[in-house]
Design a protein around this nucleic acid. Sequence first.
DNA 1: GTATTTGCAAATGATTTGCAGTGCT
DNA 2: AGCACTGCAAATCATTTGCAAATAC
Lengths: 135, 135
Amino acid sequence: MSHVDVLKLHELKATPQRLCVLDVLEKYGHATLEDIEKYTKVKFSTLSLSTIYRNINEMLKKGILSEVKLANKKDHYEITKANHAHLVCIQCGKIEDFTINTQELLQKAETLTCNKIYNITLSFNTICKECLSAK
Amino acid sequence: MSHVDVLKLHELKATPQRLCVLDVLEKYGHATLEDIEKYTKVKFSTLSLSTIYRNINEMLKKGILSEVKLANKKDHYEITKANHAHLVCIQCGKIEDFTINTQELLQKAETLTCNKIYNITLSFNTICKECLSAK
DNA sequence: GTATTTGCAAATGATTTGCAGTGCT
DNA sequence: AGCACTGCAAATCATTTGCAAATAC
C-alpha cells in the first residue's frame, strides 16, 4: 500500500510533510528524531521541527509508526510491520530487522508464567560484519 | 554484596544519597526517575533532583544500574543483574523480572545471522493476575 | 469552502552544569 | 586534609502549544 493510502486509511491527510517523514523511515528503516529532521531537511528544507513532532506522535497513536526503544540509545521510529526482532550492533549502533519465529518462546513463557502473552519484544546485541572487518 | 560494597567496588563513595537510591531500586525492582524522586523523598526529604540525575547517570556508566526501555512507557531503572526477561502488564504497567533460559534462542539467532550474539533483550506483554481478577 | 495542517514563536518540561559549601574516607 | 559529592540556581536541551496563514480534499 502506498503511503498516501496508509494515511487516508487512518483519516490523516496526505500532506507532503507526512509523506516525506514516511519516505525517510522507509528508506532508513529506523531513525531517531534527529535523523528524521536531518534527512527530511534535505528534500524539504522548510519542514519544521514541531510538524515532525506532531506528525510522529499522531502516526504513533494511529499505529502507522512504532517506537523502537533500546538500552543506551535514543528512541528510534519505524513504520509498523509484522512482529519482528532487532539486530543491534553494539559498535556502530546500526539496527537491522530480523525475522525469527518466536512462537516457541512465547509458549514457553506462557507455560512458565501461567499468563497469556500478547506480544514479545526482542532484540539481539551483536557486532555487525562491517565493524568486524573494519578493525 | 551490600550496596556500600558495590559502590566502593566501582570507586564511588557510599553517600547516603546513593544508598537511598539503591534501596529504592532494590525495594521496587524497577522505577522511573519520578518514582525514584518520590520514594527517596520519603526517607530523604532533602535529596535534590540533580543529585538523583547525576547518580543515576554515574551508576549507569559504571554498570551498577541498567535502563529498562519499554514501548509506550517512561524509562525505568533497575539494579543490574544476570540476564533476565521482563513481564510487563499492558493494563497496570507493572514490570516483573522473569528468568528464562535464552540459550536456545541465542543460538538460533547466531545460526540465522552468522553473527556472534552477545546479549538478548526480551520482554513479554501480558495482563497480570491482579488485573485479570479485578475486572 | 471548510476543516486540517503547518510554521513560527513562545511556553513548558526535562536534564545538565557551575559553583560554593559539605562530608566521606 | 583533600577530594568527591551535594544542593541550589541558572543554563541548556527537548517537546508541546497557541495562533494566524496555508493547503488538502
